[in-house]
Design a protein around this nucleic acid. Structure first.
Lengths: 349, 349
DNA sequence: CTGAAAGCGCTTACAG
DNA sequence: CTGAAAGCGCTTACAG
């Protein structure tokens, strides 16, 4: 096993000082710098013999082109940034993967960052990515004011917002039909005889949460059902809060017979609460969840297509970079109601 | 709304050509380049008055330092790469997030890439990241020969392998105790009276799959239970194959009374098969899965701590970069048996 | 077919 | 306290 030299053994600040450069390759092959560049980049105009000599020098020295230097000269970095809420959330995994696949198809790398739903952290991250001169940015907004990105967009950073709209700037946005999905989900509960329906969602400043609540309210209004204030609860999706709210709605003097949950995290907690509850309560949740079909009853959901959101956004990003796209648009992807049992329970008593 | 200039309106190849540089700021503020650099980097030795003038020029021009250029001069890029199998897999989300958090604490960005379990793609990705001169690389290996990374490691790229060991090179490795976890899980089934226990796992070339099979075999041997060849199945984790194998084991003339599943994807499919099956069959799965506690029966699992794997690996990576770490080590994190019902069923008949 | 010079946007090392 | 020159490792534009 060859001794592997670690950072510690090298003079500080010269991590790559011992890396061979094109200059080293040129010297060894006895050719000019530009000729090495030609060989490395597969450009034409090099005799087979010269090419062979250069290639030998490359192999002997273990040369690998420094793309950072290349980037500085070329302008484009062939990398894009993705700012999302939390990579660990099962909703963002597929979205992120979809963005990555599109990036890969365009020869670009993907830099990921989690904002943890903190607007300041979102901004810090997005601007750090711009400082690295990513070619484009896919942002799932945590904040509601994105004017800080205007100079970057003007300087040529392609930008697409996903899942939630951009705040106070005109930009490409790819969303799910949150309003329509929630409205359909709640209408489904109403169609099964429910009138006392609770809504538990995420913090009201999050666009998707507000839109889904609006959908709930529209469905209730369409059916002429007056909504009690305490049937609606927006706030942090921590299990503690959701549990408290769900229990309150269920044990009220005036208990709900069905609950519509505003996202996957809320749904999971409410399922737990309902499992401990004696009376059967209907449930429809926004976002699909794994194994939803195997629970008793199966969980009826309004599913959005996370991968499609990511794919659509990334494709628009690269079309911006192509110059094919000029006018910002708002794209809305449909949701899908998947019935599995929990949403088809009729009101008890 | 101000007109936003898109890529299309700019001469090709000069995306950032219109970005102000330190030189522009210097000219506008009437100072030298180095003075701008001092202000931008918060270095001492600038009069308050000069600093103010420079700051004004920065704001007026909308200057943002080009970190790509900075990196070229400084040596370190303050970015690390993570090569994993699939960002969309619920196991890798938390792992990835944990790596990101550690990177963030060290002021570094994270570039993610999915190998899709393809050794060639792993290599291509890892080398592309090296060409970008990431400071370090966290790799969840798809391949079994990582000698291609030797020149990079020698050149100073910190490297840590996670989840599976490196192949044919000496490097830091952070693993779960796959062997011990599987052995304990199978021993748990044996303790509940099972002797006919099936094992369905991932492809044998994947280290974790092989180790878990070894754990299964050890537990069976410890209990003096001879293992029939057709009780063990390693292969692709596609639902089709897993379903076929599970059904074969269950409907055999000599059916198993319990199944040990080798990872989360296999577990999910086997749960589906068992749900359709008339006879109750015990199940213990490797990897925890969401909502496992809410199924009927709850799913007993051998859980690994994905976040801890990521955190541990990333921390070692930065310790390599500090120079605090010199000798490659193999770290094994414990697994945890979580009993929820399915693993405590006794053999039927 | 080949290469010397200039430059990408910064930082380093040094001199005033 | 301040700045001119050189250089990081490439590519571009040009000349031979």
């Amino acid at each position: 096993m060859p001794e592997i030299t670690r950072g510690a053994d090298r003079p500080p600040g010269t991590r790559y000082g011992n890396r061979p450069t094109m200059k080293d390759v040129a010297a060894r092959a006895g050719v000019g710098l530009k000729t090495v560049s030609r060989v490395v980049n597969g450009e034409p105009g090099v005799t087979p013999d010269t090419e062979r000599r250069v290639q030998e020098a490359i192999d002997a020295l273990g040369f690998r082109r420094n793309d950072s230097a290349r980037v500085l000269r070329k302008g484009r970095t062939a990398s894009i940034g993705l700012v999302l809420e939390d990579l660990a959330d099962p909703f963002y995994g597929p979205l992120s993967r979809a963005v990555e696949e599109v990036a890969r198809a365009h020869g670009a790398l993907l830099i990921n960052g989690s904002s943890a739903e903190d607007p300041e952290r979102e901004q810090e991250l997005a601007l750090a990515l711009c400082a690295r001169r990513v070619d484009g940015l896919v942002v799932i907004p945590a904040g509601s004011d994105h004017r800080y990105l205007e100079p970057e967009i003007r300087a040529g950073v392609a930008t697409v917002f996903v899942d939630r709209p951009a705040g106070r700037i005109d930009a490409d946005v790819v969303l799910s039909d949150n309003y329509g999905g929630a409205r359909d989900g709640v209408a489904h509960l109403i169609a099964h005889g429910h009138r006392r329906i609770g809504f538990i969602g995420d913090m009201p400043r999050i666009h998707t949460a507000a839109e889904r609540l609006r959908g709930y309210q529209a469905a209730m209004a369409d059916a002429d059902i007056p909504v009690a204030e305490h049937w609606m609860s927006l706030g942090a999706t921590s299990p503690e809060r959701v549990r408290r709210e769900a229990e309150a709605m269920l044990c009220d003097r005036d208990p709900v017979t069905a609950v519509f949950t505003g996202n996957n995290r809320v749904t999971v907690t409410v399922i737990r609460v309902l499992a401990e509850h004696s009376r059967q309560v209907a449930l429809v949740g926004f976002d699909d969840i794994e194994l939803a079909d195997l629970l008793q009853p199966g969980v009826t959901v309004v599913a959005q297509d996370a991968a499609a959101l990511g794919r659509t956004a990334a494709e628009r990003l690269f079309r911006q970079l192509d110059g094919t796209l000029v006018t910002p648009e708002r794209i809305e992807l449909p949701t899908r109601l998947i019935t599995r049992g929990s949403g088809e329970l009729s009101p008890a008593g």
